[in-house]
Design a protein around this nucleic acid. Structure first.
Lengths: 220, 220
DNA sequence: TAGATTGTTAATCGATTAACAATC
DNA sequence: TAGATTGTTAATCGATTAACAATC
């Protein structure tokens, strides 16, 4: 049913996940069918792109009618790997945002946090009740990856240590890395990598604001 | 000195912030000059794009020689609005990641957290020692934005409340919104908006992994 | 001057849009 | 059948790349 293509862009994959979130909300609202234009209203993405993205993977809709939401959710979930359990390991407590209890809402379906490691020895042993885990030493990295069958590493250490920790995770056998630090890291071809540059993306705001404030314009 | 252009893409602005981070690290390493190819090595971005991005704003380099790092940092900082103080307000404790003490590292230079608001009444009054602030009620939103001259709102509430909180922030007078929730929000033309879709970006990993694991391929 | 690297141009590549044939 | 919306094509738009003239 699912077309297997290698030429699907990263933009398409990210948008598929955005559709998934929107569809889940529509389902919760009691909807059962939807149009590409409705997904567009929920996501701010044009219906043309939505139909094109979906059709990269198969024919999920009915002409003249639209899409069944539950059907679409099931298939997008399948495409994005949401129906598999992916054990993840969090390394570092330098993640910018808030409250570890929210990791769960924030990670995609199927992602399971198997361990949280930190480089600061003072923190070892601290309980994280929301996850039923306690903070472990970075020294356990290789053992934890092996024992808990971790396939994805979330890197949230200080920028200086990002590449070193990434290398250790890869050597220990993870298949994918999400890098939240300000540094860009590199991995071998065979390893999946996502760099999340929240800071640079937020800089868009100060750029826009600085340009709209007349006082600053005059600095030219 | 700085060209004032309206046609610079968001991608260019995000990359400018990435260059800034890389240059700061190079400066800390004791470098004083750099080539576009060296910035490329630190960021994984091609030297062609780097020179093109920079030249959208002016001529910052010297032919045959390269760029002065301190000079470049100063100008990129000016372009991105890093040399101004931007008061920000954090609404919601649903941010996915960790440890509020790290907001500072994570936000771009110039961003100052003036207040943290939450919708959960049980949390009111809790101290955030790293920020020297205590958690306030959402009811104070308008008053805080006015009193502390807040120009940027960081929205980190539950998805269902994202649009409502955004509307209140805009009505209260902020000029920019960073939306960290899974929902896409809309704002008037005149308001700057950045949507940070960490979850969808991370889905790239499970997509890649699902495709590389033979067992799943056979589900077709 | 000879060597090197920027800033910029033209060519390529990819992504988005608009339009419509297919079909429920 | 008539009306509607998908899936897909062709046209447009924008971003990246490669190459090189300008120049330190």
């Amino acid at each position: 049913m699912i077309k297997t293509r290698d030429d699907v862009s990263k933009l398409t994959i990210t948008r598929m996940a955005i559709y998934y979130n929107a569809l889940k909300r529509m389902l919760e609202d009691g909807e059962t069918m939807c149009l590409s234009s409705q997904i567009g209203q929920h996501t701010g993405i044009s219906s043309s792109i939505i139909r094109k993205d979906l059709s990269s993977f198969g024919e999920f809709g009915t002409k003249g009618v639209g899409y069944r939401i539950d059907f679409l959710l099931r298939w997008i979930g399948e495409i994005l790997g949401y129906n598999t359990v992916w054990n993840t390991i969090v390394v570092g407590m330098e993640m910018p945002l808030l409250s570890i209890s929210c990791y769960q809402n924030f990670l995609p379906p199927g992602f399971r946090i198997a361990a949280v490691l930190d480089m600061d020895e003072r923190n070892y042993g601290a309980m994280i009740p929301e996850l039923g885990l306690s903070l472990e030493s970075i020294r356990n990295l290789e053992a934890v990856v092996f024992k808990k069958q971790v396939s994805i590493g979330l890197v949230a250490v200080q920028p200086e240590q990002a590449q070193f920790v990434t290398d250790r995770l890869v050597a220990a056998g993870v298949a994918g890395i999400a890098n939240f630090t300000q540094t860009q890291v590199t991995v071998p071809e065979s390893i999946a990598l996502t760099q999340i540059n929240a800071g640079p993306m937020i800089s868009q705001l100060s750029y826009d604001l600085a340009r709209s404030v007349p006082v600053l314009q005059s600095i030219v």
